[in-house]
Design a protein around this nucleic acid. Structure first.
Lengths: 157, 157
DNA sequence: TATTGTTATACTCTATAACTATA
DNA sequence: TATAGTTATAGAGTATAACAATA
């Protein structure tokens, strides 16, 4: 599949179309989140803490496929916004002070369902018109690729 | 579709799966390109110049959905690598010196087919196993979304 | 004044690696 | 010495806005 120059057109790759749509979806979502003062990376952390309540930075880094340094910076920003707390791990006390725990504040916990509604709306705007059959094919194909290649880590960008 | 907390699971959105796969595809491609000393954004510019030969920075910004400032920075990097040239627009001469033109050097032109082969290989690694029917459903769904929402600009990230 | 392009500034995200404090 | 976490640095990408040169 070339254009006569021996070079595949950019849009000749399925990856091109996925990236095109995916970038637009993410950008639209980022814009919605920005109105609430949150980035997509921050949202993912908040969402994760909503599910698990108290998590060590290193565990979060592992689950989200990020470095500890990246989590540390994100956590600082979220703490400044008073959406999470950072503190020693009570389960490790008394006093292995190396271990820390991140947890949602009340404000943070209250915010997650609102942001989740934005995520729902965003998804519907882009994919709501697809018929269920198409939807299933696409979702299963993506899950299949993830399984087949053994991919992990939550996508953030 | 909630998890009982009134909050949709992250992976309950089709956008999640698209982003997951798309990010992995892009990252794998970026790694391949990095071995040739080029980023994905630079690749997109090179690919565009390969097709059109001499392009004004502002035209490139328009086509790629980037700001002129962003193009300017990219162009500087590519010129430093001696993959493109920056100069006055000969079609505008004599002498409306505001207009500039970007064009591939011989090295740049020679590089594009090699990078294109990397793109082919990358796409095959992720999507080569899909049966043609699945492939068509996915590609057409993505194109449909682009059309329906009037999206434009080449995705770079 | 309007337009093309560059530059300055700033912020997000990412990664590597040095550093601290604990153990 | 090993581990958990933080901090420093750097680079890519993005955007806005000020700026220079030209028309």
């Amino acid at each position: 599949m070339t254009d006569g120059n021996g070079v595949t057109p950019l849009d000749g790759h399925l990856g091109y179309w996925l990236r095109f749509v995916s970038n637009q979806v993410s950008h639209a979502f980022a814009t919605k989140l920005a109105a609430r003062g949150v980035t997509v990376a921050e949202w993912v952390v908040l969402r994760e803490l909503f599910e698990r309540d108290a998590v060590a930075p290193s565990a979060l880094a592992e689950r989200l496929g990020m470095t500890r340094g990246a989590i540390s910076k994100l956590a600082d920003r979220l703490a400044t916004k008073e959406l999470i707390t950072q503190g020693p791990d009570p389960a490790r006390l008394p006093h292995d002070r190396r271990y820390q725990t991140l947890a949602l504040t009340l404000d943070g916990r209250a915010l997650v369902p609102e942001l989740s509604a934005l995520a729902d709306r965003n998804d519907a705007e882009f994919f709501g018109h697809l018929d269920p059959g198409e939807r299933v094919v696409i979702e299963e194909a993506m899950k299949g690729i993830v399984r087949r290649l053994g991919l992990r880590s939550v996508p953030v960008e």
